[in-house]
Design a protein around this nucleic acid. Structure first.
Lengths: 208, 208
DNA sequence: AATTCCAGAGAACAGTTGTTGACTGCATGG
DNA sequence: CCATGCAGTCAACAACTGTTCTCTGGAATT
């Protein structure tokens, strides 16, 4: 069943991943729309033409990067929203989770923040699609909460979208604060916590 | 007092503005970091070398675009926050104002959304600086509200930042919906309104 | 009226880019 | 063991890039 793929395909996936990694690295100080195909292959140490064996274009590579950056994040998000504990505990855990994720995958986070409104349409589309999925999943998870009794589907989706956007903004702020002093990161964490508290309070009194 | 500047300087400012306008136009389908100096001068119909008479580099031009896009927005924002009327009226007016602004200056809005996290550091910095000014001004305006009695300075700044970020996200969503059907724009307006309502409720019960 | 100044033109530079077609070596499947 | 498939190479292409230096026409200053 577990098909060990041959030496052939293994090597191919290795260069493919090397291309993705190199691209992600180069994107730390430029946007996808200015990333050159030759630039990427040069960084990997491979002929420019080899690029075409893996991707049709840079935009295509970008879409795959979106998958890599966001695809594996769905379970993590869902479990965070569905977590138990009182409101403040859940918020603290969520903020901490975001901080850890930014620390572990700064390049991915930067890529998503940058290309969400970036100059490459298919990539924007891919990100938009993944974020819409997040919102939908968060909405479903929120609907499970007893506190969501009486909420309309539209209002739940509005709240879910707000949480998703908030998550992204917080991640991006952690990223900006990453090279700065530790107190700056602390400030970001505190502000994010307060924002989530305020949203939580609004949610609690929504039905009045 | 009103110094009419000579034919000489008038012509210079004219080409300068033409360069800014052309750049903004070209940026509708790419990012600043991939915008070429020759591309801009070609669009204006001027020699590539003429560019240097006005800007040191594309990044420099980008910083000036930030000024053009956000510099004149301060009074509008402040008056919106300080507006009278009940909560829902103020929210409706704010959302409407954002919608009109996006309609009137779509390219400026796109530029800010795109380059806020874009690949050109000085431009990111300039945007960050202007947005920090917005937050500070909104904070001061919020402090005037009777509802802000008992709020700490930090919490007020947190709320102000939330409003500023929300304004930007709403503007960007209106932009995405611009080419779509009118119902889509209506949906964006409704969601933005609901988000502001929720934040307003959270604000109202903050002190509990 | 004579002089200075300067926005813009023009040509040339060394590099860079994406894409093509034909190739080679080696893992794969018969 | 041989034939096929295919990841990666290589050379060449036309087109493009940012930046330099030199020049010029006409407005601004004296």
């Amino acid at each position: 069943m577990s098909h060990t793929l041959g030496v052939r395909q293994a090597q191919k996936q290795k260069t493919r991943q090397a291309l993705l990694d190199a691209a992600l690295g180069l994107l730390e100080e430029q946007s996808l729309s200015s990333l050159g195909l030759r630039e990427v292959t040069r960084a990997v140490g491979v002929a420019p033409t080899a690029f075409y064996r893996h991707f049709r274009s840079i935009a295509d590579l970008g879409v795959e990067l979106v998958e890599e950056a966001l695809g594996s994040l769905h379970p993590m998000i869902e479990s965070t929203v569905s977590a138990t504990g009182d409101s403040d505990e859940r918020i603290a855990r969520a903020v901490d989770l975001i901080a850890r994720h930014v620390d572990a995958y700064p390049a991915h986070v930067r890529f998503i923040a940058r290309e969400r409104h970036g100059g490459v349409q298919p990539v924007r589309e891919a990100i938009r699609h993944q974020l819409a999925r997040f919102s939908e999943e968060v909405k479903v998870a929120l609907a499970e909460h007893p506190e969501s009794a009486g909420w309309s589907d539209g209002d739940l989706l509005m709240l879910a979208g707000l949480y998703v956007d908030q998550m992204l903004m917080t991640a991006s702020q952690f990223l900006e604060a990453m090279e700065g002093p530790a107190e700056e990161r602390e400030r970001v964490a505190r502000t994010a916590t307060q924002r989530l508290r305020l949203v939580g309070i609004g949610r609690h009194h929504w039905q009045d």
